[in-house]
Design a binder for these strands. Structure first.
Lengths: 260, 260
DNA sequence: CGTTAAGTTGATCCTGCTCAAGGTCGGTGG
DNA sequence: CCACCGACCTTGAGCAGGATCAACTTAACG
């Protein structure tokens, strides 16, 4: 609640108007003004639509301003693997290679707004403002750490732990956007199918796992609302290394002049 | 064979001396000279040793010059998840956050040499040579794509497909280092345990899968040698999207002056 | 030739998948 | 206000892909 990020709420229509947001490409001291010169505009995507699809050439990178999106892969048989849930501040669309083709898609979970920076602008942008280049490096490598973390979860943990891990991560990443808030309840715009696709499980099994987690008084996810009933138990079940947990909440280093 | 990358071979002791290598941070037109000014030296790691370990503060990034390494996570119970196999040209150690702690480790599979660039050098380096910053962005986002690909493999594919996928990927990434070569046999310095840890399987099950793949005339991995018996069938079994396959072999865009 | 790390094979078990039949909620039109 | 519909969730029964445990073989190395 608190900040009008619920699906229906009135969404601000430019990067600038999110004072509480600390993270992302457009944020930080002086960076917004810089990126504003190079972005080609903002784009609104309605819930359920693709920002970009698998197989498309990717001509821009995107900075999420408002709303939730997810990156996904499709299998031949139609099944899906969700790779990443993007919250405001995330940078998407950096596919390796000039004139490259997207090997994964990005779909909006809620109505969303992204700031669009054309690929051609990246070279001049980074040339004129090297600190933005390093910020990009930082953001992408945070995404990489997160991906490695999921890899470990999916590769080696049983279902209960995977689901707990995902919910904990999303809760923390969400809460981190609004520093100081301590709410233990949030709007989480996912179906159980999404959770299954992200954790490598079926929706049916996710249903059973969520029932058990609720019964055990750990988390209650229903009607797109996530309620953390027992944070300590949740951290315990998720089996999350506290170090990793800390790294989720770590901010981009604000750039100092000279070498800090 | 061909190029002395076998475990024992005489390994060149500086970035410079790998003429055939096209990829990586130190390579490319003019980039080597630039990075040379900022690197603190080269480091030799013997097979089985960690380049960096989980929990260590990370004070440098590394560019693999020679040898194989892998990134890994450890679980409480001692099990392991392998996150990435690093070949020459890979950039490792970019953990998000200033003064950050490594959330995963890096271990050498063979004797290896890495080029060390201290973290403090990164800001001045990217400031004076923005094209290096963008090259870093490119390298890391390629790692991210690869991680997403593994996520899909582990999350949604059965054992046979996962193993085939990994072997195919390593074969292609290896061969891509030596453009023009068409060998269908390579030294692959892994145990079946490594393969299991990378694919989220047990070593025992990997043994069975490899037996079947051999029986079916697809690949033969034994005694740390990988022989591709039927490339087409392998691609088929791996279920690899040809697009993704192409992106493994895509090179870093060489930087043009101005906006290309 | 003894020792050790790595791979093989079989028997058994269990986690999570599949298939299928309801149930709940929210929206829409009569 | 109610009937209907579609998306989502729930629950059960049966199945299967891989895990586990354990014994044994093979290769590599001194």
């Amino acid at each position: 609640m608190a900040r009008g990020s619920e699906g229906s709420g009135k969404i601000p229509v430019d990067c600038q108007s999110c004072p509480a947001r600390v993270d992302g490409l457009c944020e930080g001291p002086g960076v917004f003004e810089v990126v504003a010169q190079f972005k080609s505009g903002d784009r609104v995507i309605e819930a359920g639509r693709d920002l970009f699809s698998i197989g498309e050439p990717c001509e821009a990178i995107y900075n999420v301003v408002e709303g939730w999106l997810f990156l996904y892969n499709l299998l031949e048989d139609g099944r899906r693997q969700i790779l990443y849930f993007a919250l405001p501040g995330a940078v998407l669309g950096f596919h390796p290679g000039r004139g490259a083709i997207a090997t994964y898609g990005a779909q909006a979970l809620t109505d969303a707004i992204v700031c669009v920076v054309p690929r051609e602008s990246l070279d001049p942008l980074s040339r004129q403002h090297p600190e933005v280049g390093m910020r990009l490096v930082w953001l992408i490598s945070r995404g990489l750490s997160l991906a490695y973390d999921h890899l470990t979860s999916i590769g080696r943990h049983p279902a209960r732990q995977r689901v707990a891990h995902l919910l904990l991560e999303l809760y923390i990443r969400y809460r981190m956007q609004w520093p100081g808030s301590r709410i233990e309840e949030m709007h989480l715009p996912l179906t159980q199918e999404h959770i299954g696709d992200a954790t490598g499980l079926t929706g049916v099994h996710v249903s059973r796992v969520l029932r058990d987690l609720r019964k055990d008084g750990i988390v209650d996810f229903r009607y797109r609302r996530l309620r953390i009933l027992d944070p300590d138990k949740l951290i315990d079940v998720a089996g999350t290394d506290p170090q990793m947990l800390a790294s989720w909440t770590r901010r981009a280093p604000s750039e100092e002049p000279g070498a800090g």
